[in-house]
Write a protein that binds this DNA or RNA. Structure first.
Lengths: 149, 149
DNA sequence: GGTATACTCTACTATTATAATCAGGATTAT
DNA sequence: ATAATCCTGATTATAATAGTAGAGTATACC
């Protein structure tokens, strides 16, 4: 698995929406989010559009438009998002149908290992929701406050 | 973690050397290995040179030259090689010193998760040696033989 | 010694993936 | 209307990856 910048941005965008997710959802403007995360606006637009296609976020157009989380942070796991944005461990061809590497004399003995790695990875990220991340964020904020006093 | 083609070739090259590792090591020629693995010769040359720098293989020049495993397959773990050839999970900047993403308002809450993923991954690959892979290779060969009868 | 046969080294090129940018168009609250 | 927002598609820039080329160096063997 590998997280690109785009994927990193996507995760942070969802976290940002999670932070601004209250019972009465208020749309978050791309511009503001881009400022907070220090991401080029036009790039963040693309990222959010993809997240919308993935069903993670919703949007409102017009004057008071913006983006909203499609469901509560506790209902979005890191795993769901990671499956959507991250690349697999192995080189692409290795998971394709009929890849030479899988019928050659070495028969992809490595593949068993990669699958175990993927499974372990997914078990971890499936166990973390965005409300968990909010918690650990708050905890870190508090720690930092203590340090600053 | 991500395995590129080059990394995939490196792993298969070591496996090939492991297969040809007998008590009296006989050097394996690049040309032959490239044929077996269906890898461009000149590219495999580069791969093997890097593996040599990494201390995984040794080489003999001249008429009866070729490559040899630097130590027995049981003494080479997948983890050792993977650490040498694979990229980390996170986008590079995220592990760099002073990356903005780690001092911004979200303080890299994801990083804890990535570190857990890396740890789990390493635990798996550290537990597999190339003699383990040889075994599973033989097992697969046997299975296939049964199927063919 | 000469020579064939291997590995060694450095540079280059092509392709693809990633990151970012640009120019508009569509929608909606006021 | 209009201003603020998201939406769409094309385009460019940069870097990583994959592959190629060619001259050089060591070694076994005759």
């Amino acid at each position: 698995m590998r997280i690109t910048y785009k994927g990193d941005y996507a995760l942070k965008a969802i976290l940002d929406l999670a932070i601004h997710y209250h019972d009465k959802p208020v749309p978050v403007r791309i511009q503001h989010m881009a400022g907070r995360l220090d991401i080029p606006i036009k790039f963040l637009e693309q990222v959010l559009l993809e997240l919308k296609k993935g069903g993670f976020v919703e949007s409102r157009r017009g004057k008071v438009g913006g983006y909203l989380l499609a469901r509560p942070p506790s209902k979005i796991s890191l795993g769901q998002v990671v499956r959507f944005i991250a690349s697999p461990v192995e080189p692409i061809a290795c998971v394709e149908d009929g890849y030479k590497g899988c019928r050659d004399i070495y028969k992809c003995v490595f593949r068993d290992v990669w699958q175990r790695v993927s499974a372990a990875t997914m078990r971890i990220v499936d166990g973390v929701t965005f409300s968990d991340l909010l918690e650990s964020l708050n905890r870190k904020d508090k720690e930092q406050m203590v340090y600053q006093i």
